[in-house]
Design a protein around this nucleic acid. Structure first.
Lengths: 135, 135
DNA sequence: TTTGTAAAGGATAATTATTTTCCTTTAAGA
DNA sequence: TCTTAAAGGAAAATAATTATCCTTTACAAA
């Protein structure tokens, strides 16, 4: 994926920090602010947490990133893509994408409810196979 | 609904503040901390915000309440019931239950993924019919 | 290229959100 | 009634996020 193009397409300036943020998120799939800050500091030791927050917010605003809200935990962020489901392990915190297309469901509920639908999120949470072993 | 029984069944003491919190949530369907605090102050002007937080947390811990996480907004809380979907209006903030049973879907994904599933949430968001008019 | 400028970065302060502490009060079982 | 562990309230402490202000930089127009 070309992050420079991605940023420009969303009307944002290309900066080294932004490129670093995007590649870190892409590499992990999803990241929370704190992990992201630790990760990004490896490449940019002087980056400010405020810069990270500002960039996350602007990228969410232009819908380059999507915030995944989790109950009881801080949000994670992912690079926007077609609506899909998420699977969270409540023990180890790993968040995975599920290959489950939500478009048809969204369209159906849009039709039934008369809402102009913007977004659909399906979140499953439980204990992953690895963590089940450890009990 | 009998809130005294509900509290006792979850091993919690019955207090006037807790009864007030539960009936406020039930009346509205879902509430965030701040609205809940305003509402509950009508009946208990001296209630502390810390008390509200503590009660919400304990009731979530014993699964009497469920936290509904929303991206970009503070969480809402609802009284636990069978897994159902939610519909949020991004403009007016109203959150509604959708009569959409998620059990079968959860069971299927549990089987496919080998996770021990604890929870499933389906959240749709968009603009409600009323707010569409106002544009 | 150079240059002008709006936007981005970094440090810090400020604000907002949530939790903890500590003392008083109360629910509920003995 | 008592007893006591838990709950309430006020305030302080901590965590999370945003705003401010000055410096630096991306980038487009000359």
């Amino acid at each position: 994926m070309n992050y420079e193009t991605l940023l420009r397409e969303h009307g944002l300036k290309v900066t080294p920090q932004r490129l670093g943020i995007l590649s870190a998120i892409q590499e992990e799939g999803h990241m929370g602010i704190d992990d992201l800050f630790l990760q990004i500091k490896k490449k940019f030791p002087s980056i400010s947490l405020a810069t990270l927050y500002k960039n996350i917010n602007t990228m969410v605003d232009v819908e380059l990133l999507k915030e995944v809200a989790l109950s009881g935990l801080k949000s994670r962020y992912e690079i926007s893509k077609a609506a899909h489901a998420h699977l969270l392990c409540e023990k180890c915190g790993q968040l995975k994408d599920l290959d489950f297309d939500l478009k048809d469901l969204s369209t159906k509920i849009e039709y039934d409810s008369h809402y102009r639908m913007k977004r659909i999120d399906l979140m499953l949470s439980g204990i992953c196979p690895d963590c089940q072993q450890q009990d």
